[in-house]
Design a protein around this nucleic acid. Structure first.
Length: 513
RNA sequence: GGGCCGUUAGCUCAGCAGGUAGAGCACCGGACUUUUAAUCCGGGUGUCGAAGGUUCGACUCCUUCACGGCUCACCA
């Protein structure tokens, strides 16, 4: 970061900020900087502290929607926004002003503003923030406009805006400089509005069902509740390593031990793994727990939650996602994992089968099986390969093998299975839930098995959280819990190709100097 | 991490069997008092992602690297 030609600290006052912005400086920017320097030298204030506006563009547009060409209002409005484009016609000028939700055309006429003010206006640049005062009218061509009588520069823009017509297409710049993306590609705001409304709807729904929103540690001494590599950090004063949480699960369950019956948390989890169009290192989940409920209760609740959320966030239950049409309406299918495999691939697996026979079948399907895979893991691999891509409409897959479900309660009818379901939409998993394991002895046994696993990743996350076991020893009520990946859900609701399209500031590798 | 592709002006993109680049928008100068991608006249503003190599000569060919996209593997 240090530059060789950087002046010593004592000379910093003389340091020319504008000369250091970028090297080399393009001509349009250089001219803007010259303009700024000249204005500053003449005592002009380029960055005001506030502007008292009395209307927004969308309010004006709603109020004067019925105005006919040639008609005008007597009322004077004060609006503020960013200049997006100029159309100069000699002694009259049009320009578009964009505020938070919409944009409106400004009209300046030298006769109305006076010569000095008019000419000064032409010195403004695209990107500048201004406050304007004027009346509403409709042009000959039918465009609702503001006839500006006075204006103020509120904040000066130094950089050049991307192109007005093609916008900003370079996805790298769009993700890195999301603010520019919002300025130039306003349609992306719809995606993020759906995200905002989705989270809001989930809160409303859970609150209405008596769930309490809580906050549990993101900085944890032992990361648990999922199988994933954690981010490691260090607490200086305590001189201990800490981990960013991979899931809130174990803390939310402690609250059930403490007597809370329904809790939820909406926030980030962090997993130190690969980045892809489906994976960002930090992602948002809602996780909730309901005492005295089992996974069947949560299937009913989940279906209601998704339907409510979809309607609140988008106003519809029918979506296009990639090449598929998805509908949240109607009753959602519930099918066990083994039945689903039989339904979609014709293979009838059972735990009575010889493991070699299972490996054989899996091998024929082209599923890669490691030596150490047990029956449950083989079944899951076959499921992912043959069934998952077919689950376009919302489908609950239930009764997962115990081998891949270390925190779920055993199925009462089959000790190889658990009371667990996942919800699939568009061929992808969006929710994962189960009747919770509440027997400390059983939980300890499963943690120990994980800790001894030959899989390195499982071992890292297999550090046993003895305090959690202790909590269970005080008695946790029967409960069911669920996690829903909000980024994934928003991707479906907005037909987004990449998780980065639904995250405001997705992680990007730092640009090198 | 593997494979494939991309990176040229502030933005969107051309270009080249190897002779150091050109359009539109933006920007600058001029005309224009209801336009809306305003129009008309004039002006190209560049470390062709970075570093090596081949060559008389590289934006172009080769190698390595960086960043990004798609895809496979793993995970949500």
């Amino acid at each position: 970061m240090e530059k060789e030609n950087e002046p010593p600290v004592s000379d910093r006052k003389k340091f020319d900020y504008y000369a250091e912005i970028e090297e080399p400086l393009n001509e349009p920017m250089q001219l803007k900087i010259d303009k700024i320097k000249a204005a500053a030298a003449s005592g002009k204030i380029l960055y005001l502290s506030a502007f008292e506006k009395n209307a927004s563009v969308s309010e004006i547009k709603a109020k004067y929607a019925g105005l006919a060409p040639g008609e005008k209002s007597d009322e004077i409005y004060k609006l503020a926004g960013r200049i997006m484009i100029f159309r100069v016609h000699g002694k009259a000028t049009f320009c578009d002003l964009k505020d938070a939700d919409d944009k409106i055309q400004l009209y300046l006429n030298i006769k109305n503003t006076g010569e000095d003010k008019y000419n000064e206006f032409l010195e403004l640049d695209i990107g500048d923030w201004i406050g304007v005062e004027g009346s509403v009218f409709v042009t000959h061509k039918g465009e609702l406009s503001i006839n500006v009588s006075d204006y103020k520069l509120l904040s000066k823009s130094i950089r050049i805006m991307p192109e007005k017509w093609h916008g900003l297409k370079d996805v790298e710049i769009r993700y890195r400089q999301r603010y520019l993306d919002f300025i130039v590609n306003p349609e992306i705001k719809k995606v993020f509005m759906i995200r905002i409304k989705t989270i809001d709807a989930i809160r409303q729904f859970l609150n209405s069902r008596g769930f309490l929103e809580v906050e549990t540690p993101m900085l944890q001494p032992i990361p648990g509740g999922a199988t994933a590599k954690p981010f490691v950090t260090h607490h200086n004063a305590l001189d201990i390593d800490m981990y960013l949480r991979i899931a809130p699960e174990l803390y939310l369950k402690r609250l059930l031990v403490g007597g809370f019956e329904r809790v939820y948390e909406i926030n980030r989890n962090f997993r130190n793994e690969g980045i892809s169009h489906k994976h960002n290192p930090e992602f948002t989940m809602v996780e909730f727990y309901q005492a005295f409920a089992d996974y069947n209760d949560l299937m009913i609740l989940t279906e209601e939650l998704f339907k409510y959320t979809a309607m609140q966030a988008t106003g519809t239950m029918d979506f296009k996602y990639r090449d598929n049409k998805i509908s949240f309406s109607g009753k959602w299918e519930k099918i066990s994992m083994l039945d689903a495999i039989e339904k979609y691939s014709g293979i009838s697996f059972s735990f009575d089968m010889n493991i070699l026979e299972m490996k054989n079948i899996a091998g024929k399907l082209g599923v890669e099986i490691s030596e150490n895979f047990g029956k449950g893991k083989i079944i899951n691999e076959v499921f992912e390969k043959t069934v998952e891509p077919c689950l376009i409409q919302p489908t609950f897959i239930k009764d997962y093998p115990i081998e891949i479900s270390p925190l779920a309660r055993k199925h009462p009818e089959n000790a190889n299975l658990t009371e667990r379901f996942e919800l699939f939409v568009g061929g992808e998993e969006v929710a994962n839930a189960f009747s919770e394991l509440i027997d400390p002895k059983d939980q300890m046994a499963r943690f120990s098995k994980q800790a001894e696993s030959s899989d390195e990743e499982e071992r890292i996350t297999g550090k046993i959280d003895l305090d959690f076991i202790k909590a269970l020893e005080y008695g946790m009520p029967p409960a069911a819990g669920e996690g829903i990946g909000i980024d994934r859900l928003v991707m479906i609701l907005t037909d987004s190709r990449s998780i980065r399209d639904v995250i405001l500031f997705p992680l990007m590798k730092p640009e090198k100097e």
